[in-house]
Design a protein around this nucleic acid. Structure first.
Lengths: 396, 396
DNA sequence: TGACTTTATTAAAATATTGAAAAAAGTAGA
DNA sequence: TCTACTTTTTTCAATATTTTAATAAAGTCA
């Protein structure tokens, strides 16, 4: 049955409280009257709810805003004294740990190498660091966020498979909640990054976004109406493993001709290696002193910079496939924005034109013309912002 | 900005009224107390709202239900005396016209041939028939629904392009509302059919469905959380024109290797014709007395029935491509159900096994195992049910 | 200084939901 | 047939928010 959300009277105030909290959270400078305009609630209602939130300590009054010819507005903010959050980001070789306040300012941060840790070692480090950070905070820890690589069933908080740390069906949420009795949220890196872009980055306030992380593989996150689309089993969005060339090369997933097998950085490296093995001359080969095993994208981009023919033509090929895959996305989703992220962004200038051209050629005019294609800023810590907002969305 | 649905006090009753109306509409036998359970509203609230709906004449009390050991429930129904609807379905060669009551019983229906009508002729016929049906109804006409082929911007009510009747950017909604001053809703045939399956057919109550109409082309409708996903410009869902074979045949859209160019009935016929032209013997050729221009899918299915090698092997090929395209859908959307409709259903028995096998091989286990694949019943008038429910969803 | 704006609050009125209790309309066993 | 029990539905006072209208507060600008 669709759309069975009863407007239960009991929840009413709670819902509007939540609504107002979210407006304050996502808009840097808002006053009561602006909130009233944004939410279509009446000013007295806003005043009432704000009073309750002030009393509860969730919101604070900041400085006065600029007067626009009358009484100046009082700027409202989330009270960063209200609570703290803990976020742990488990990457390939490192684990990052953060203590954040309610305004998402970083209070403490630390990085550990996990290169030599096994599964159990990771668990121990994870729990120790959470305990450390909890000890360092004088406030209540309102939520814990964990970012891992690989597929995650977020609603259950289970890491389905995380190759770098050897996890398989690990119920992290359950484990942490049992130990610390603090609500815990688990998400994978691609989705966390996508939400980071959605809440604070390039995709801010863009309701329908397809986020692509083109690195070693191709991960995707589909944001529809401002929410991650998860499908029936929390595993939707495997755009990287859609077939775009029936007769294409074998993919790590066992299939043939996947988007990922044709347009990822791994494909790029494979193709360059193949060209060199076939006898083509390339600067890339020189950079690694002929040891083709050591070729990485870094060398390919460097060679392209120098005008290397092999590097440039292989980048061109990747760009075409990337364009085809994105054209498919544009035709299916008609999104407002396709955001390209991941290592490939370093090669942006060698592929951008061809990618755009290919998308234009391969997608419907109506869909293409209403969709922006953008590249993300690789320096911005999007995953941290993403998971933090996941926590706040749930607890506020 | 995401999720800015203020629970405006004014709308509150309206929302619950609407909620209850929809529960009554979509469940054949419901009593007040069942409504209370389904909606989580309290019994007194349900009674109050039902009283208002009874007073307004929108709902009526039907017979008593079976007692389960206590006072028997009073079955509530939409009052079919409340209003009527008019629906016009403009097909390839015919225009169907319906007058329906509020319970969606057909009161009047008629069919006109439009084979020899030009653009203006269609307009005239359309307006005349609406006027006729309006005259035949003793009640208020609460809404008009128009189903056309080809892309439609439903929110604006514009037929973007309808090849068979020569329409281009025709603002039908505006035109009809201007003439009759009755709220009008426009949708294309594929979406209307999909909604018909969703509200009354195989996909009943299944939230996430991808509906494929595989006929001359491949049209798709994506239903997420019980609503058609429309994208930013109301044109999302062009799954038929996603590339699944970079080096594939040219498609009517100008692109190469589209799903539609590989797995539609048109592709099937093209491939059979090609095989015969290349010298293969086929019964199909005999059925048309060697005139290959006259080959249609009907002959292909007939030949397959007789064990014709060409027909069977080409159906097999179509099945593989259909499987690949659906595997892509399964990987991207992780839907509960993929529903295959259209002419291809007549060839179901020749393709079903291969389609399922291919999907299984090409999609992620987790996604495949949580997704059903079904074929629709071609006899059921799904488009009529779909567009009728679109009207009711809006006006109730 | 005074008129005007804009922002925010107050207090009474309006409205819909809730909870508790009762009424209504049946079933089932003795 | 009577009585006890169920289930459905309604009644009614209590409750909780929002709304409307009016007012206060705090500024700008000429």
């Amino acid at each position: 049955m669709a759309d069975l959300i009863p407007v239960s009277y009991k929840l009413l105030k709670g819902m509007n409280e939540s609504l107002i909290l979210n407006v304050i959270r996502h808009n840097k400078y808002v006053s009561r009257s602006e909130i009233a305009k944004i939410t279509n609630l009446t000013p007295p209602t806003v005043t009432n709810i704000i009073n309750k939130l002030l009393e509860d300590g969730l919101v604070k009054e900041d400085k006065l805003g600029e007067s626009s010819g009358g009484r100046p507005p009082v700027i409202l903010k989330i009270n960063n004294e209200a609570f703290d959050l803990i976020v742990i980001i488990i990457g390939t070789d490192i684990m990052e740990e953060y203590l954040l306040d309610a305004e998402l300012n970083i209070r403490e941060s630390q990085v550990d190498s996990i290169k030599n840790e096994d599964k159990e070692g990771i668990f121990k480090l994870l729990f120790d660091r959470i305990k450390d950070l909890k000890g360092k905070s004088a406030k209540e820890i309102a939520g814990i966020g964990i970012v891992v690589r690989g597929p995650v069933k977020s609603t259950e908080g289970v890491s389905v498979f995380s190759p770098n740390i050897g996890w398989r069906n690990v119920p992290i949420k359950e484990m942490i909640e049992k130990e610390f009795e603090i609500p815990t949220f688990v998400e994978n890196d691609v989705r966390a990054m996508a939400l980071g872009e959605f809440y604070n980055g390039i995709a801010k306030n863009v309701g329908n976004v397809v986020f692509l992380k083109v690195g070693h593989g191709i991960g995707a996150t589909i944001i529809l109406d401002g929410k991650i689309y998860r499908g029936i089993n929390d595993m939707a969005g495997e755009i990287g493993h859609t077939t775009i060339d029936v007769a294409g090369p074998k993919c790590s997933c066992g299939n043939y001709g996947c988007f990922e097998a044709l347009a990822s950085e791994k494909a790029l490296v494979n193709n360059v290696v193949k060209r060199i093995k076939e006898g083509s001359y390339s600067l890339v080969s020189e950079y690694v002193n002929g040891d083709l095993e050591n070729i990485t994208t870094r060398f390919v981009y460097k060679a392209a910079e120098e005008g290397d023919e092999v590097a440039l033509s292989e980048l061109n090929k990747i760009a075409i496939y990337l364009g085809i895959g994105i054209a498919n996305i544009v035709n299916v989703f008609s999104p407002e924005l396709v955001l390209i992220s991941g290592g490939i962004v370093r090669g942006r200038k060698f592929i951008e034109d061809v990618v755009l051209e290919t998308i234009k050629k391969r997608s419907f005019e109506a869909n293409y013309s209403s969709c922006s294609i953008a590249f993300s800023n690789p320096d911005y810590n999007t995953a941290l912002m993403g998971i933090s907002n996941i926590i706040l969305d749930s607890i506020l």
